[in-house]
Write a protein that binds this DNA or RNA. Structure first.
Lengths: 237, 237
DNA sequence: GCGCCACATTCACATGCGTTAATCCCGAGC
DNA sequence: GCTCGGGATTAACGCATGTGAATGTGGCGC
């Protein structure tokens, strides 16, 4: 139930105390598939996901929807968002979510009191945009099969980094429609493709759980290179 | 020849002085289609484009290439990149480019000496990732025709914001292959599509110049909503 | 003013993915 | 154990976009 920032810098106990405090002040629980904040609204808080999965998405004027990223426990949605007048996208839950809201004042105070945390927040921001670039590449260059495999790789690795995998399995609460909206495909084609992956003995996916038979093979099929997650940090705390 | 940050916050003359200094210290000129820094290398400088166009791109193991964004005069490539051990993508020039390199020390000194600039740097970072999200959406949801129209809209509006348009025209130094790599299409299909747009009296594109006959119509065709550029800032300086 | 070459254009054909619409299935709730 | 409904699966068919390759052309350097 801590912020995933600690995966980047070794924080002093004073720093950890600051964070712990901030994450307890204002906690909300939201049901599955519920908006957290919508495009056009004014951002008032930095959101930190404490439990569950959430997502970012964007909708075109005619309704077409693109899912832009997923958040898992420990992820911080957007450092310093309140600099912007209004949201250019929406946030919503995927599963039931527990999140902490941090106000502008609290946030700025944290940044001032701890340069370590401030640096960690920059790191978080840089990784977020690196992931977004990888998604652009994913949709722009990879085939359907590769795209879905890549999404599986990314989520599996991220969950593993935060200790949320169980051997070769992890939670995977997305519907095929959501996978489709995240990869720029249709739900029907996602279904076809996943079945092909099953036939190829790459994965098993049922009951909102993903089983990866051979991660190396999955990564190779997906042309997955984890460098963009920048896990080569100084030390884990 | 100033940083585009000033489009966001009204900077005091002391702040402007700090920036001007930093942008003069280390200036380089690069020829067209030349790498600035490559994936895997360790980032040493923050790059600021002073003249010309540059681009970010990413290459898959088998050579497929995705262009991730374009930089124009006044753009700052990645604030605080040196927090990361290595680049997860490459930067290269499109045209001949004049750029300023800012070292880690210089950069951190600037952030400490001017909270205004520090805030402007956060704003820049947030807009950068917002653009990246829009590109993900562009490739994931829009048709070829819409995608290319959207790219035209974005570059035209960005150039106009920095005073680099001439009525309904602007520079547009990209080849059709580059447009293809930026939109996740093939060069042949880009060619077909652009000719269709010409037939529809939407644009004219020759000699590395783009003419937009009716920006509103182009925006509407592209489902372009400029909100993600966050130009609704406090005041222009 | 000429020639070269990168870039644009055109063509014929292939296919991955989209569309529409049934039908199936399983897990949650009663 | 039954029923209901959201999600998964299947099928038939269409089209936007890809592929491979040849040909055209205009801007720049000499």
């Amino acid at each position: 139930m801590t912020l995933h920032l600690s995966a980047f810098v070794r924080l002093a106990s004073a720093d950890r105390e600051i964070l712990t405090q901030a994450l307890q002040r204002r906690v909300r629980i939201l049901e599955p598939r519920q908006d957290i904040i919508r495009e056009g609204e004014r951002p008032r808080f930095v959101n930190v996901i404490l439990e569950g999965w959430a997502q970012r998405y964007k909708q075109l004027a005619d309704g077409r929807r693109q899912i832009l990223s997923f958040f898992i426990a420990g992820d911080l949605c957007d450092a310093n968002v309140f600099i912007l007048k209004q949201m250019d996208h929406s946030l919503s839950t995927v599963t039931r979510v527990k999140l902490a809201e941090i106000s502008q004042n609290e946030f700025q105070e944290i940044m001032e009191r701890s340069p370590r945390i401030a640096q960690a927040l920059w790191w978080n921001e840089l990784v977020t945009v690196a992931i977004q670039r990888e998604w652009t590449t994913n949709i722009g260059q990879r085939t359907a099969y590769e795209r879905i495999a890549h999404l599986f790789c990314e989520m599996f690795v991220r969950l593993r980094t935060t200790g949320r995998t169980d051997d070769d399995e992890c939670e995977f609460p997305l519907t095929q429609s959501e996978i489709a909206e995240a990869t720029g495909l249709t739900q029907v084609h996602v279904n076809r493709t996943i079945q092909e992956m099953r036939r190829d003995q790459l994965i098993e996916l049922r009951n909102k759980r993903l089983k990866v038979f051979d991660l190396d093979r999955l990564m190779s099929v997906a042309l997955f290179n984890p460098n963009y997650l920048h896990l080569d940090h100084e030390g884990i705390t």
